[in-house]
Amino acid sequence: MSFRATHELHRRRAGRNIGLALVLLAFIAIVFGLTVVKVTSGDPMQAFDHVPRPEMATDGTPAQGD
């Protein structure tokens, strides 16, 4: 008797775990990529959601890196 995952059920569980791991890794990569793009695009924005807010520019020109 061995404790190794030899049953078909274990293979399915392993597949599910690997699938979920890949999904989570992809999500991390996407959030990282989005953050880099939002922060470096230099639009006037507030940090809590990184959504550009043109109304924050006072003189009509986009403020850089506020």
Partner: peptide
């Protein structure tokens, strides 16, 4: 022991 379990879903 899968006899008593529901078939588990795959990914």
């Amino acid at each position: 022991n899968t006899h008593t379990l529901q078939p588990e879903a795959s990914f």
